[in-house]
Amino acid sequence: MLAVDEVTTKYGALTALHAVSLHVNEGELVALVGPNGAGKTTLLSTVVGLLRPTGGTVRFDGRTINGLDPAALVAAGLALVPERRRIFKDLSVAENLRLAGVTAKAPDRKQRMEQMAELFPALHEKWDLSAGFLSGGQAQQLAVARALMCDPKLLLLDEPCLGLAPTMVDVIFDLLQRLRSQGRTVLVVEQQAQRVLGIADRGYVLRTGTVVAEGAGPELASRADLFETYVGGS
């Protein structure tokens, strides 16, 4: 479904991604892990069109999408839950969701909003409240719900557990598993590497802008050698 082929992305003098390749098949939950600064966020930003790659191609559903506007990619079926959520704090919860359905037809949008109310009862209680008043966990749920409003074929999540209390982290992991059982295709960047690999179909380990390992999720999670680089050792 998503095929990233030898993508290189630069920020000024810094080459953040060196010819990275990865793919996501339909219905998979794929985890992308790696230490801070490895280029995970850069990769997601490149996929959704916020950054332009200097080399390589990104294909989605067989179509080359690098250089396309993020808005066009949403229409094509890609949605990102950005790092640090970036919900619209001045808009109400409902308005956040409605805006996220901007590409959908009015009846679809309505129907999806009802789905979100069902899927996230905690949000439904705060429907008309400004999103700025939500707690961290609720805000993260809103960020996910907002992306789901785009009814994406592929959902990308960037560090959904960042800054959340442990109980909320559990909620987010539950949500990931639920999305997976619903047959959604998901690519998630997460810092809690072993935990997320434990529930993923497949995983990639990124380090200083290159893929250093890939494989089935649980199998990667058990490979101690990969995580020595995290905790030092050697």
């Binding site: 229409a75 970036r86 619209f88 001045d90 808009l91």
Partner: peptide, 24 residues
Amino acid sequence: TLFGLSIRAASEDFDAARLMGVKA
């Protein structure tokens, strides 16, 4: 209106609005 919401959202965080499908 959706256009109005887009303006409010874009004023707060333009890139996030684009990620939701708002055309810049």
